[in-house]
Design a binder for these strands. Structure first.
Lengths: 377, 377
DNA sequence: TTGTACGCGTTATCAG
DNA sequence: CTGATAACGCGTACAA
């Protein structure tokens, strides 16, 4: 017994030396030779659910272990036409502001047997370069948290490449999407704030007609109009901290006074707005001004902020995206589906959410519109 | 002329239909047939710097465009033994706290012609599963911002797989690393704080003997000891916001009084510490207590914090890691190199950095050690 | 259950 | 510069 073993191991050693000498990789043929079976037997041993006898399986696995053999995914994908790779296209911004998204998507895809080929976009214009790689690398499908043009989406269809858009929509085009209802979120927030008596709103929106911040603004504006409140002052923002301060300044300048509440298209802008209001303008938030954001990013929950905001169910959305994509891949389904989630309201403490106690006074008077010194403009 | 063109385009259409009917992909043979050249000619047209005549190139490119042909990377990598993919192994934590790192690495690798196969680790124990995939997918090299055991690294050597560790070291092992000198950072910070007269330190470190927070703590402790100051109180932390508050409580409890300064192993812990000190304990920072962190994450620069911290040159480090890896890949170099960067001090406003003005008083007395009410424990 | 023979789509070699 | 041919390493009918 021990003699047989040592023979196998010796053969393995000499075989490995030979392979190294020929400067090639260990293949299933090498394993087959060492195990004394055919190459197809080896192949079957590495295919889950194939029919192999216990004995051959053991032989093959031993030989494979001795040679450090691992199947070559490139060769496999050539014949199976499945790479078990999914491309993830994500903007830098998305990863900066929602770092947990990447981890969630990656986990969900891994759990479904897919590897992640990552493409980060510095500028939205890099999409073409990225797509060229996507076609070359024969990924099984794509999840995109980036803006694609209708032409891009058409190319996915032409190449029969499954695609799921994450938090992006495409007007008038049939495409799988997983989104949070940002318009609804905007409406919810406006409703809550209006119910608490806020009348004059300022809104720091996005800088792009299709951004989530813009949709949130649309929802808020819709609701505000429905309630017959004064038209809100809307200014653009670039999602970053600085935009919060700039936006607040612009709103005050445009209005000539303080609004009752500021709705920011994202938490980071809300935090920028909040810091500026409190520390530069010396305002009491929410006493003199309510500030709210969207996303419930980690810092929004820190003591210094405790922001009033809405949370997207990111883990659920990531799972939905992975599900949607993998079902399209596995069953070659070509129908499209849109899965829409709702955000969850987080009360926080930067917006007044109940009407001021003074009984008969109309809510409009609750937060007096303070005249600000010229200096702060 | 127009007749010829339309003929080519018609052939393309019928060819495409045929290919779709056979349910196979467009190959270089199809392009060759349509262009009326050999398959090798097509191949050469897609290889940069191959020798092809202008005429054939034009013919081939036209045919390729008509058929939407793109070379198959799997087939190519099978023969070239280069996948032009690099695996990036990163812990969730690293991506959560340094989201810009991923973008930087991705950009730098892309710029060097490599795609990124991403593996995120929920637990450090997932490494084995991830490595199995790494071997299968024939990546050209690996950048790991995660803890690898010496056995793991040995397997990289055995398989001749280029590896660069990012901000991780391995004792007594020859491996490429790109790191920031965290011990030096700890020393720098301790020096600056000691020079300003702080004597009694509290340190919120890591929870792992090899973490960056632990190295920073070691550096700080070394320097504090060299300066002959009282032994600092060291408590463990888990890198998150909550650990900052817990750590501060523990330090105060252990010391029975306030320390002069708290050194936190990361910014997020420093922010947690700061918020707790200011908003829960009602302390004046830096008046009664100095707080400093490491990393200069984005929130550390927000008005509410303006944290005293040290910045790692992440973009440079990412470029260095990509350089190191790609040179090992291209030139099959097997020597190892360690590239070490220094952090940059960010003054901020949460630590007193100049001695208190009172001339003859020893610095020790500068910040009186306030006795705290039992309640806060 | 096992082995034979073939093909996946490309690049590399070499003769013309 | 071009074309024929042989790999690359594996999965899978098919026959045994």
């Amino acid at each position: 017994m021990s003699k047989t073993n040592s023979t196998v191991e010796d053969s393995a050693t000499t075989l490995k030396a030979m392979i190294a000498g020929e400067n090639r990789r260990v293949t299933s043929y090498d394993v087959a030779q060492l195990a004394g079976v055919s190459q197809s037997a080896v192949s079957r041993c590495f295919k889950p659910g194939a029919s192999v006898s216990k004995a051959t399986y053991a032989l093959v696995m031993k030989a494979a272990a001795l040679l450090d053999y691992i199947p070559n995914a490139a060769a496999r994908s050539l014949i199976t036409r499945r790479s078990n790779m999914v491309a993830l296209i994500i903007t830098n911004q998305a990863n900066l502001y929602y770092p947990e998204l990447l981890a969630e998507l990656s986990q969900q895809l891994t759990a479904r047997g897919q590897r992640v080929l990552l493409f980060t976009l510095q500028h939205e214009g890099d999409v073409d370069r990225v797509l060229a790689d996507v076609w070359q690398y024969q990924v099984d499908g794509v999840i995109a948290a980036a803006r694609l043009t209708p032409e891009h989406v058409a190319e996915f269809e032409r190449r029969r490449m499954p695609l799921v858009l994450f938090n992006r929509k495409l007007r008038d085009q049939s495409v799988n999407t997983v989104t949070c209802d940002h318009v609804e979120s905007g409406r919810m927030l406006a409703s809550r704030l209006a119910a608490a008596g806020h009348r004059q709103f300022g809104i720091i929106a996005g800088n792009d007609p299709y951004s989530v911040a813009t949709e949130r603004q649309r929802g808020a504006c819709e609701r505000i109009a429905e309630l017959g409140l004064p038209a809100p002052v809307v200014v653009p923002g670039a999602y970053d901290y600085r935009s919060g301060a700039l936006g607040l300044k612009a709103i005050i300048a445009q209005l000539g006074s303080l609004p009752d509440a500021i709705i920011c298209g994202s938490d980071v802008m809300a935090i920028g707005c909040l810091d500026f209001a409190r520390h530069e303008l010396g305002l009491d938030v929410p006493g003199q001004l309510s500030v709210a954001g969207f996303d419930a990013v980690e810092p929004s929950n820190w003591i210094s902020y405790n922001l009033t905001t809405l949370r997207q169910p990111l883990p659920k959305m990531a799972a939905a995206a992975a599900d949607l994509l993998c079902s399209r891949i596995d069953r070659h389904e070509t129908d499209t589906e849109r899965r829409v989630f709702s955000a969850q309201f987080i009360e926080g403490a930067t917006a007044r959410l109940t009407p001021v106690a003074t009984s008969m006074t109309p809510p409009a008077m609750a937060t007096p519109s303070l005249r600000l010194p010229i200096a702060i403009m």
